[in-house]
C-alpha cells in the first residue's frame, strides 16, 4: 500500500469518527465538533493529494486548505453562537428536543 493510500484511509477514519459523533451525540456542541472533524478530514485529503500528487509545486492544495480553515473558523464561530442562542432559549443543548423549526 502506498503512503497516499494510508493517508486517505486515515482521513476516512477521521471522517467516520466525526460522522458517528455528530450522529450519535445529542449535545449541540459535540455535533458541531463532529462536523469540525469531518472538515479536518477533508483538509487532510487535500494535503495528502498535494503531497503525493503530480504537481506539488502548484500549491493549489495548500491554498485550498487555507481557505477551508478560514471557512471552518467562521463556521465554528457562527455555530457556537447558535449554540449559545439555543441555550438561552431552551436552557439545554439537547438537539433531539430542538424541533421548533419543523415544517
Amino acid at each position: 500500500m502506498s503512503p497516499l493510500h494510508l493517508c486517505l484511509l486515515l482521513s476516512t477514519g477521521l471522517f467516520c469518527i466525526g460522522l458517528a459523533g455528530a450522529l450519535s451525540r445529542s449535545n449541540a456542541i459535540l455535533v458541531l465538533l463532529g462536523i469540525e472533524l469531518m472538515l479536518n478530514a477533508a483538509n487532510l485529503n487535500f494535503i495528502a493529494f498535494w503531497r503525493y500528487g503530480p504537481a506539488p509545486s502548484a500549491g493549489a492544495g495548500v491554498v485550498f486548505v487555507i481557505f477551508t480553515i478560514a471557512v471552518a473558523a467562521a463556521e465554528a464561530a457562527v455555530g457556537l453562537a447558535l449554540v449559545i442562542a439555543l441555550h438561552r432559549h431552551r436552557r439545554n443543548l439537547r438537539l433531539p428536543e430542538a424541533t421548533r423549526l419543523k415544517g
Binding site: 460522522l19 455528530a22 450522529l23 445529542s26 455535533v31 438537539l95 433531539p96 430542538a98 424541533t99 421548533r100 423549526l101 419543523k102 415544517g103
Partner: peptide, 14 residues
Amino acid sequence: YARAQTGRVHGYLR
C-alpha cells in the same frame, strides 16, 4: 415537502 421536515438535525444528517 414540509412533511419530510421533522426538525431533527440528526435525521437530516443521517
